[in-house]
Nucleic acid binder design. Structure first.
Lengths: 200, 200
DNA sequence: TATGTGTATATACTTATGGATATGTTGGTG
DNA sequence: CACCAACATATCCATAAGTATATACACATA
């Protein structure tokens, strides 16, 4: 079982490593920046789990995470952070990261999370899942939801009109008002927003 | 800590309940169909975790899961199944389910999974995550990926052309060929497929 | 060398989408 | 009842998207 912990704060990194080793993970390597982490993968092979800090030299947002995921060849890679927003965490998971580990996590939970991710499961604290609906975000009407659903299925206005038993003009109206409510530039944008926010 | 196990196979349900109780979950209620499960929520209040069988009377695909998630008011609801496809499991997670629990899971893992989901984390076995690329699915060329990325950002062909320093016609060409490769009806459909398959 | 693929462009065309404005119908609420 | 919100429809117009076909060049490779 080979783990990698990459974080530029020595204290944080060492603490995490110590805990992991204490809990039965024998081989835990360390890196203090992305480049070092990547070359560790290159020289010593893939890890069963890589914990990667978001605010680390070389990361460049989630670019670095992607690189590490590629380097580690599909094996679990998780994002760590003390300050990342829920959006970033969600994006990381959407990219296929094995998990998001807030540094606020208790050491016990941290080890448990590592164990889970090593076993191939995804880890995400619920605080991320609880999606707060911004008050400024207007509610979509039932019809608008119908239309949005159609758009997400890749249907044309004509098809949506047929399926909902509406006129095409009416569908267009809903597309427009719904897009405005979502702040979308066009139907495609609206579909992506809907997917991201799990509106449907 | 209140759990609910809903499954129409008495033996399976009782076994799971027994294990959970044995592992320290005192209050574990049962239901053998969706209707019974929903009325348990209505009469006795929300559960800290509901394990819902996919192949249960009243489920009607993932409709039932959605109902239960609404009834349980945001608290964890997980889908159980012995036979559901990875697609269904993914869809359930995309809908916001707290996890997917295959019945093939060892009782020990099952209990561990329950513990995690109660704590508000998501549980998904990696067999689902490992996405096999079907051989018939052609690889997208770099340019096609550029264009697809633009589409996913909700950009127009003109904008994509500007950003990639191409002519608009060329962008249209890539949209067309790329959509064909993905089996998409149009750009919006292509964007959704890309997102679902985590292509970008 | 011949062939195929990816890239890029051009012209010409049809269809789809987006946006504006106007006019109705419902169903519920003060 | 008057009012509002959601729903529905109608024209009209501009722009975007999609389709088809043809040409061309770089590059790999059989």
């Amino acid at each position: 079982m080979r783990l990698l912990v990459a974080d530029d704060h020595d204290l944080v990194r060492e603490t995490i490593v110590a805990f992991l080793q204490n809990e039965g993970f024998e081989e835990v390597l360390q890196a203090s920046n992305l480049e070092a982490a990547l070359s560790l993968v290159a020289t010593s092979g893939c890890f069963d789990l890589a914990l990667i800090d978001y605010d680390m030299p070389g990361m460049n947002g989630l670019e670095g995470l992607k690189k590490m995921m590629l380097a580690n060849d599909g094996r679990p890679v998780a994002l760590m952070s003390g300050a990342a927003t829920p959006q970033i965490a969600e994006q990381a998971l959407a990219m296929g990261a094995s998990g998001y580990v807030p540094k606020t996590l208790s050491s016990k939970s941290m080890v448990a999370a590592a164990r889970f991710m090593v076993a191939g499961e995804t880890f995400a604290p619920m605080s991320l899942m609880k999606r707060e609906i911004p008050k400024n975000e207007m509610q979509l009407s039932p019809r608008e939801v119908d239309v949005l659903r159609g758009i997400c299925d890749g249907k044309s206005n004509k098809e949506i009109a047929r399926d909902c038993e509406l006129q095409e003009v009416t569908v267009k109206l809903h597309v427009k008002t719904m897009s405005r409510k979502l702040g979308a530039k066009n139907r495609t944008h609206a579909a992506m927003i809907a997917r991201d926010r799990k509106l449907l």
